[in-house]
Amino acid sequence: MIDVQRLRVLRTVAEHGSFNQAAAALHLTPSAVSQHVAALERSLGAQVVARSTRGVTLTPAGRIMVGAAESVAAELVHAKQQVDRLGSGRGQITIATFTSGGRLLLPGALASLAAAHPDTVVHVREAEPEDSLPLVRQGAVDVALAYHFDGPLPGRLGPSSSLAWTALMKDPLHVVLPDAHRLADRASLDIAELADDPWVLGCLKTEAYLRRYAERAGFDPEVRSTTTDYFFARSLVAAGVGISLIPSIALAPQIAGVRTVPVAPPTPTRHIGVATILRRNNPQVMTVIQALQEQIETLEES
């Protein structure tokens, strides 16, 4: 029998990368943390961490056990929530979402959820993927509407992960130009053609993405303004501050004074999906995922 407390200790060690920091987080001594990990290794008959002067790293067996620890922790939180709801007789779901995706996709999905499960209490919290995915793993959130760019998700996926990822749509980025821009009438643009233009960006991740593409095109972009809101970024474009790179779903509502031009291949793209706990058969969660899929199908047909 694997001790749940030892799994919790291993998970904390993995999060902090050292026995000392894990001990502080758990209000234990480093010696107690080491003893818990050693006892877990004895019960498994396998080493779960590799110790060095620079800290500890997970072994393959350790990664498997941390994934199991995340699943166990999330299931315990879920079970406690179910017990808490027994008295009220009402279901409950907590959804995390990034702003532009939530604004466009979530309202229709929540309407479908209300129709299918009228007694369900819905909680929505705004969070970027690097924050929302850990919340799903911890059981604090039932489903996260999230995204990633061409690279991997900001969280562990794979055989040892407690997360399941359901891809929903590709969200290509477009260049947004002032009406009077020399290239505003083009059908598409290569990023390299904009090497001399100043930029206004709607989030820090888009800036990092632009710089990566610009480096491939051989130039260093001049970023004059960085905001946390794509609508504000487009407003600055309309005011002549610079040009911008905006995901498709953040292009509504329209703003006077700007033109939107697709980027020629290879097109910068966000990949939107939902993260849930693996093997969780929650009817409210399944309704939300299905409603999001139907919402996207409707948008793509229009």
Rank of each mutant, 00 (worst) to 15 (best):
Q35L: 15
D131F: 03
V66Y: 08
M65D: 05
G139I: 01
A144T: 01
E41R: 11
N20H: 14
R11K: 07
S132R: 02
A14T: 01
V13F: 07
V33R: 05
A127T: 05
G87F: 08
A73D: 07
Q35K: 14
V141G: 03
A68L: 15
A61G: 07
P30F: 08
L44M: 12
G151D: 09
R63D: 12
F19K: 05
T99A: 13
T94R: 07
A111G: 00
A115W: 11
D150V: 11
L44I: 10
H117W: 13
E70T: 00
A25C: 12
L106R: 10
S112E: 13
G139L: 00
R90Q: 13
V37N: 03
V136N: 01
T53F: 11
Q138I: 04
E126Q: 15
A109T: 05
G17H: 10
G17W: 10
I64N: 06
L104Y: 01
G139N: 03
T29Q: 10
V56Y: 05
A69H: 01
I95G: 04
G17F: 13
I95S: 08
L58E: 02
K80Q: 13
R54P: 00
E70D: 14
G139E: 02
A24T: 12
A22W: 10
S34Y: 05
E126N: 14
V121D: 06
S34Q: 15
L40I: 08
S100N: 11
A23P: 04
V143I: 14
D84S: 08
S100T: 15
G87T: 08
A32S: 07
T59A: 09
R137A: 14
A146S: 15
R54W: 01
H123D: 14
R90E: 07
L133Y: 05
A109W: 00
H148D: 07
Q81N: 13
T94A: 06
V83I: 15
A144L: 03
Q82I: 00
V124Q: 05
R85Y: 01
N20T: 14
T57M: 01
L110I: 07
A116R: 15
V124A: 00
I64R: 06
A69C: 04
S88P: 06
G62M: 06
V56D: 02
